[in-house]
Design a protein around this nucleic acid. Structure first.
Length: 811
RNA sequence: GCCCGGGUGGCGAAACUGGCAGACGCAACGGACUUAAAAUCCGUUGACCCGCGAGGGUCGUGCGGGUUCGAUCCCCGCCCCGGGCACCA
């Protein structure tokens, strides 16, 4: 058959039409006949259009999914929409479109884009988090958490972004500014908020890392570990002199307490307020107001003496009580003992204000410092510490904690940097928190039978500070579920990180109307075999999802401790070294490339440009190379369908390259997903086949064409499927068995071995790949060039690495 | 400041982690085909030096040292780029 021209548009439209009209095509059988494999990619926010970061993420996932199908797995490969969130409301304000309408039209468009790119999703499992069918289960789970004391309400100082007019989680504050508005400083406001008690799981979140260590990038686990910030120490009460009150401090270095020369309170500490009367009250207030706006880059430590003193319980010494702007109210007890001799920050503070510096720890092999010029922060030997003198820091910490506990003025304690998750948002486009405020009964949960609490459609979104829901009377006015009298609905909605914390469970049982999912249905698919997404979610989303999984396990509806066995974090797609983002206006849309070159080329291009975990700078200049490659495969295969036979003189050469390629591509899939080198190997194979073509026998010609198409299938599904059909084969290509590697066929008859003298390559010898050390040494020493170069010298040593090289050392 | 990544031709990158540096692709150049161009096919292409030539030599993986027969890879000390954390007591 003569070769035919490659018309990507025609071929791709044909197949994407067929594929999307067959809803069963990519369904998992879920009958246990084959081993299961769950490929999960982070679901997109429906912002309007796909960007190249999505294309990259989903190309990686789809390539893996198709490979696993070919390897014989029963693959689950779903997709959905993280559809609640702020941009929908911003669009509502700006374009006068309803958030629901805006979201749904974005979803429709992006779904078409995904289908056009040929991603093999089971759309029957599509999950859209802004539908009542989904978010009612957020509410249901919230009630379960409430019952277990994991969801609670408390008044607290919260981060407030004036731009968003909403509360931000600590995780959404970056450098004191809003994560969306990087130049808007966050303010502190007092509000009643809903919280989820993630701190209750802090220890498990750390411990269970052991279960996923093998499959997760260590960097992500490290980041989470730092975020949780576990710290072992001691809480100690300093009695406030002249008052029946203690100041409790947290320290990791109780062994230094004989060097404590003052106590410092956070400005927000209730005791600060009580101690600062008269003129000091104004000073304190100014400092509190300043806290939310502090620029961590160049904050100057400031403080003032309250005029009060407190007593060190270990030695009875009286120390002054200060207030300091660098003491965090949200960490530990919000108060510290300052030991300037052994803590850099205390040193800086006490030096500035002339507070004494008393060294009490000496280096293990040195003397106690006199008038130190910097803090000695290492562990050492205790000095000037009464009966503890001479102990090591470690011993001191342990025994002094025991003493505090025994005498009732403190205890050993573990503190976390992690804080409870504030989930309240004063926003319309989110899951309503299923609570009612009754004047008589207080906060009352909505009964399960009344779920879902549906978000009202009629809404006027203005962007003003109050939550839009507060103005919807039909929503707000309700009856108390307990006493039946008039009551008001909670108008806060949930953080959208709630939605993405469990959607991957819903995928497995997406139409369940009785429960978030059936435990029996879900269990065989968990943990997820492979989760793929951006490293930007290393802390927030992935930590919340892990937490949520443990909660669901404790509720009894999930059987695993950890949701994701393996995690792959792909690199970012950048443009001129900058992250692509809407605000920077440097989004690249895939549509144009798909029209010009086709989805196959687009996918190959994103995979070829760099290994998947590496950041890549978007530069389209090499995209034509991928198009050329696809075209070359196309021409080779089409012109060799039922082609005449050659002599067979190049059969061995072609088969060798074919099997080397099978080996290479397979090992890339199994070990490291460096698809750039897999695609390079397929190019090499294609190049070799062009050179061998004339001499190929009919059977080898057909075999090479067929295997080439199979190997290409996970990367470029459209052209592969079309060629498969043209070869007269039936059945979807992604269900065909992956080609078998044959080591004997891949082996070279003879290889070239470099011979070095003094580490420099001086000659090359030909030898069998399995030639022995002795043979190689003899061949090398017998080589003419080597003989010439070694003449007159003594060969001191010969290093032979079989199959690799010979290295000769001369004197 | 601390913790991770990373620095290789004109460009994206390989070298599976101690064994031929630069696979594959882009760009560039040459040849074939063509009236011509495009497309296609076949080649060349790290830098410098010697040679008419086949060929040979020196240098070369951010910089400076070290270990080794041999270092892009390991060790020590720097420089630059990207990311995370940043008064966490």
């Amino acid at each position: 058959m003569p070769e035919t021209p490659y018309h990507h548009q025609e071929i791709e439209l044909k197949w994407s039409g067929r594929w999307s009209s067959d809803p069963q095509l990519y369904q998992a059988a879920d009958d246990g006949a084959k081993p299961r494999y769950y490929v999960l990619e982070m679901l997109p926010y429906p912002s309007g259009r796909l960007h190249m970061g999505h294309v990259r993420n989903y190309s990686i996932g789809d390539t893996l999914a198709r490979y696993q199908w070919m390897r014989g797995y029963d693959v689950m490969h779903p997709m959905g929409w993280d559809a609640f969130g702020l941009p929908a409301e911003n669009a509502a304000i700006k374009n006068k479109r309803h958030p629901a309408e805006w979201t749904h039209s974005n979803v429709a468009h992006m779904k078409r884009q995904l289908q056009r790119l040929g991603f093999a999703y089971d759309w029957d499992r599509e999950v859209n988090t802004c539908t009542p069918e989904y978010y009612r289960w957020n509410q249901w789970l919230f009630l379960r958490m409430m019952e277990r004391g994991l969801a609670y309400r408390k008044t607290s100082l919260v981060n407030w972004c004036p731009e968003c007019a909403t509360v931000l989680a600590n995780e959404q504050v970056e450098n004191g500014c809003c994560w969306r508005h990087e130049t808007t400083p966050v303010e502190q406001r007092e509000r009643d908020q809903w919280f989820l008690r993630i701190t209750h799981y802090a220890e498990q979140l750390l411990d269970d890392m052991a279960q996923i260590e093998a499959g997760w990038p260590s960097m992500v686990l490290t980041m989470q570990r730092n975020w949780i910030g576990r710290s072992e120490g001691t809480e100690v009460d300093f009695r406030l002199k002249g008052a029946d009150e203690n100041i409790r401090v947290f320290t990791t270095r109780v062994d230094t307490i004989y060097g404590a020369t003052c106590v410092i309170l956070a400005p927000e500490h209730p005791i600060s307020k009580r101690l600062c009367t008269g003129e000091l009250a104004a000073t304190l207030k100014a400092m509190v107001d300043d806290q939310g706006r502090k620029d961590p880059e160049n904050l100057v430590k400031e403080g003032f003496y309250t005029g009060h003193t407190a007593v060190n319980p270990y030695n009875g010494q009286e120390v002054p009580v200060w207030v300091g702007n660098f003491i965090l109210w949200g960490y530990g007890t919000g108060a510290i003992m300052a030991v300037p001799a052994h803590d850099e920050r205390d040193f800086e503070f006490c030096t500035k204000y002339g507070i004494p510096i008393v060294p009490v720890i000496r280096p293990v092999d040195g003397e106690l410092a006199v008038n130190p010029t910097e803090a000695f922060t290492e562990y050492g030997i205790m000095a000037n510490s009464a009966e503890w003198t001479g102990l090591t820091s470690a011993e001191g910490r342990k025994r002094m904690s025991e003493k505090a506990e025994k005498d009732g003025f403190g205890k050993a304690s573990i503190t976390y940097r992690l804080k409870d998750w504030g989930v309240s948002r004063q926003r319309y486009w989110g899951t309503p928190i299923p609570m009612v405020h009754c004047p008589a009964c207080g906060v009352v949960p909505v009964p399960e039978s009344d779920l879902p609490v549906v978000l009202p459609y009629e809404i006027n979104i203005t962007g003003a500070g109050r939550s839009p829901l507060e103005n919807v009377e039909s929503f707000v006015n309700t009856k108390c579920p307990r006493c039946g009298n008039d009551a008001r609905r909670e108008t806060d909605t949930m953080d959208t990180f709630v939605d993405s914390s469990w959607y991957f469970f819903r995928y497995v049982d997406p139409h369940n109307a009785q429960a978030p999912f059936s435990t029996a249905t879900v269990t065989p698919w968990f943990p997820v075999d492979q989760y793929i997404g951006g490293v930007t979610h290393a802390i927030l989303h992935l930590l919340y999802a892990r937490f949520w999984c443990k909660v669901m396990r404790d509720i009894g509806i999930v059987s695993v401790d950890e949701p994701f066995k393996c995690l792959f974090t792909q690199g970012m797609v950048q443009l001129n070294g900058q992250t692509m983002s809407k605000s920077k206006g440097n989004i690249v849309d895939p549509d144009e490339m798909v029209v010009r070159f086709g989805a196959d080329t687009c996918r190959l291009f994103t995979l070829f440009a760099a290994p998947p975990e590496k950041d890549m700078d978007w530069n389209e200049s090499s995209v034509e190379g991928q198009y050329r490659f696809v075209s070359r495969v196309w021409r080779f295969v089409t012109r060799n369908i039922d082609a005449g036979s050659g002599s067979g003189s190049t059969d061995q050469r072609a088969l060798r390259k074919l099997h080397q390629t099978i080996g290479k591509v397979t090992s890339d899939f199994e070990n490291r997903w460096h698809f750039n080198t897999s695609i390079a190997a397929l190019m090499e194979l294609t190049n070799e086949l062009y050179l061998c073509e004339a001499g190929l026998s009919a059977s080898v010609r057909a075999e090479c064409a067929e295997k080439l198409v199979l190997l290409l299938a996970p990367f470029a599904p459209f052209v592969s499927e079309e060629l498969w059909e043209m070869m007269g084969r039936t059945g979807p290509l992604f269900k065909q068995p992956w080609p078998q590697f044959d080591a004997a066929l891949a082996a070279e008859n003879v290889i070239e071995i470099p011979v070095q003298i003094g580490g420099k390559v001086r000659s090359r010898i030909l030898a069998a790949p399995d030639a022995s050390q002795e043979t190689l040494e003899q061949l090398a020493l017998a080589d003419m060039k080597i003989q010439a170069l070694t003449a007159g010298n003594t060969v001191a040593k010969v290093v032979v690495v079989p199959g690799k090289l010979v290295s000769i050392v001369v004197k």
